[in-house]
Computed example of a mutant assay.
Amino acid sequence: MIQDLQTVRAAVEQTLKNNKKARNNDTYLTLLVLEKLGYAEYNYTHDHYQITIGQKELHEMPALESIRRTRQKLQQQGKYPPTQQNQQHRKQQEQKVRQKMTRK
């Protein structure tokens, strides 16, 4: 399991380093990481990603939440920051969640 997490971390970090768009968009980051790990393929003919997951792959592939959490931890460490606009948006969303939680 630890080896799997190290592989996910390495794939996420390399993707964030090489692709600024992935720093702002978790869905895009997830697709690129799944492609890097061999679970997704980009179809250039039809201009879309294709993910085919069999039973074996379903048990082997990383949890999608692990990819997002890894991105979040790296960015909290100051690595591969999102755009200023995206940082502001995330901060606003965080404040909304905190406000909802304190009202209950």
Rank of each mutant, 00 (worst) to 15 (best):
M1S: 14
M1C: 11
M1P: 13
I2D: 14
I2T: 14
D4K: 11
L5V: 11
T7A: 14
T7R: 13
T7L: 13
T7Q: 13
V8T: 15
V8D: 07
V8H: 03
V8L: 09
R9S: 10
R9K: 15
A10P: 02
A10M: 08
A10Y: 05
A11Y: 01
V12K: 01
V12T: 03
V12C: 05
V12P: 04
E13D: 09
E13Q: 13
Q14P: 01
Q14K: 12
T15M: 06
K17C: 10
N18D: 11
N19V: 10
K20C: 06
K20E: 11
K20Q: 12
K21V: 13
K21N: 12
K21F: 10
A22N: 05
R23G: 07
N24V: 07
N24K: 09
N24L: 07
N25L: 06
D26V: 09
Y28A: 06
Y28Q: 09
T30S: 11
T30M: 06
L31R: 02
L31G: 00
L32A: 00
V33R: 03
V33E: 04
L34W: 02
L34K: 01
E35N: 07
E35R: 10
E35C: 02
K36V: 00
L37S: 00
L37N: 04
G38L: 02
G38W: 03
G38N: 01
A40R: 00
Y42E: 02
Y42R: 04
N43E: 05
N43K: 04
T45D: 09
D47L: 07
H48E: 12
Y49C: 00
Q50K: 08
I51H: 03
I51W: 01
I53F: 01
G54H: 05
G54Y: 05
G54K: 06
Q55N: 09
Q55A: 10
K56Q: 14
E57A: 12
E57F: 02
L58Y: 10
H59W: 07
H59F: 08
H59T: 09
M61R: 13
M61F: 03
M61Y: 01
P62N: 05
P62F: 04
A63R: 13
E65M: 07
S66W: 15
R69P: 04
R69C: 10
R69L: 15
Q72W: 15
K73H: 14
K73A: 15
L74T: 06
L74M: 11
Q75T: 01
Q75H: 04
Q77M: 12
Q77W: 07
K79D: 07
Y80H: 15
P81G: 08
P82T: 06
P82W: 06
P82H: 06
T83G: 11
Q84K: 15
Q85C: 02
Q87V: 06
H89A: 13
R90Y: 06
R90C: 04
K91R: 11
Q92H: 08
E94Q: 15
E94P: 01
E94W: 09
E94F: 08
K96N: 12
R98E: 13
R98I: 11
R98W: 07
Q99L: 11
Q99T: 11
Q99H: 09
T102Q: 13
T102E: 13
T102H: 10
R103T: 09
K104S: 09
